[in-house]
Amino acid sequence: MMPLRSRTYTACSGCSLCLLSCPVWRNTHDIRLTPHGRAKAMQHGATAIDLAESLDSCTLCGACEPACPESIDLVGMVTGLRGELALQREATPPFDGVLPAPTGNISPPTMLIAEQSMSDNPGLLRSIIEQLGGDVAVSVSSDSGTDISIALSDGLPIPAERLEHFLAPLRTTLRVIVADGRLFYALKNWLHGVTIASLGEALSALPQVRSKLSDGDLYVIESVAFHRDHERLISHYDSLRLASGCSMNLDLQRMAVPTTASARAHGREFVEEQVRWILQGRAPTRIVVEDLADIPAFQRVADVPVIHVGALL
């Protein structure tokens, strides 16, 4: 059960704990670009337009939320304000009115919502499907929900018809495995009675994956899903770390340091700075990532093999 984060900016007492794991804070040291800065500014009358730069800079990694002692919905605060900002900017929604083709093999026990980029690597995708399913059939959703994920990030309304088209086949399954962290959290709220797991969690729970990790590996957790279900997932990854001896992109608070490669907020330099910070003081012989977008980011900086966790299978 994920913790309920229903409190708003009004509850912020300014403790600054949210800054400690914030990648934007780490790179800018500008309090205006942090959850603390946004909440306090709103307490003093700031509007979405006033906070435009701050809102645009947020990577939505969600590391601030488990740190917040007031249980404020800090990610929801950003996406809500982004929605207001989009209205004022007259932003174009990511929906083109064309619905994706329906997914075949209706009602499989497990449905995988893979990243769009995974279709570029059919071998990896096939291997993941085989291993995730075991004796049970796994179908890949033909609808990656990328436009919905973008809308969620930008606080934009999702047309009811589009959302229903996305959710309908998922309701007939027992388990949904999703690669996109933002969809992971949304699906937890949208689909009741269906088990939702992140792709990273699902793969790293497999014995055949765990057995192939060793103390020379740096395992890079996808941060968005991790922080959204932190209280539960922290035990999962802690046991993985103990069992394999691998290091992880966790800071001292046990938040996942994100590369932010999947976020659209910052450029290459920012991402590489994050990657350098993850690697600082570490000398892995291999880097294993949950998010495909992290592979090129690490390859640009590190001189060791970088693979997706699915490639361990």
Partner: peptide, 15 residues
């Protein structure tokens, strides 16, 4: 020098 009220307000009190 930042003079916007919503920024100065960020520092209106302490712990």
């Amino acid at each position: 020098l930042i003079e916007q009220k919503f920024v100065t307000g960020t520092f209106a009190t302490d712990a």
